[in-house]
Amino acid sequence: MAKRIEVSDLNIYYGNFLAVEGVNVSIEPRSITALIGPSGCGKSTFLRSINRMHEVLPGARVEGKVVMDGQDLYGADVDPVNVRRQIGMVFQRPNPFPTMSIADNVIAGNRLNNKGMKKSDAADLVEKSLRGANLWNEVKDRLDRPGSSLSGGQQQRLCIARAIAVEPDVLLMDEPCSALDPISTLAIEDLMAELKERFTIVIVTHNMQQAARVSEQTGFFNLNGVGQPGRLIEFNPTEKIFSNPDQKATEDYISGRFG
């Protein structure tokens, strides 16, 4: 079930440091939204505030609203653990659990909700999720090997399998391809195109061609200087951002990179 996310007046802090200021954006279900911008402008910080992963760091906090299908995720009665079960995340560096087998990695999230999963159900779910992540054929003969025995690209797809196995409403990806070779990158981009039929996807990428290839909407983050908060400068359909952006800063950034 893909869901819409509405962010309003979001300020994100690390202790007293305002890292991201005043984000207003609406993220469409069943589409890919890309976030681009120079490093340090707060893309990861913003992404992690959507599933309340930001606040696991000591002193980190958020002001403003993130509403998913009418519910404020930062409401007083909302448990961040439940938010994270609905909003999956794939990190920049592949992070399968090294102490678990490939199969156990895939269903690690499901085991949290359902300790006594039947063996056959678990096996079905492992296969379905690995197929969903285009990894099944490569690992079906070694499901009991450690997840860390795979290549980087395979590990990242394993992490995607793990994230989609719990059927989240939204999938957040923070530069999921930056540690991967071009072939693995293409495999993951193809996968994203399939996954957006079922999930709302938000991807941070430093690779503008990637943003242009995969996303429907693109947000450009920027900051005025070191120590200043990052801001969402422009949010528009990807085609528009890359052909005729509203903001001069967006155009400079994009042309500078392509240039």
């Binding site: 599933n51 653990v81 994270r84 079960r85 990190f91 659990f97 690690a108 999230g109």
Partner: peptide, 15 residues
């Protein structure tokens, strides 16, 4: 214990 894996668990909705 690597933050990478602790965050992986938290992001899956682990307490």
């Amino acid at each position: 214990a690597p933050a990478l894996h602790r965050e992986a668990a938290l992001a899956l909705g682990a307490t």
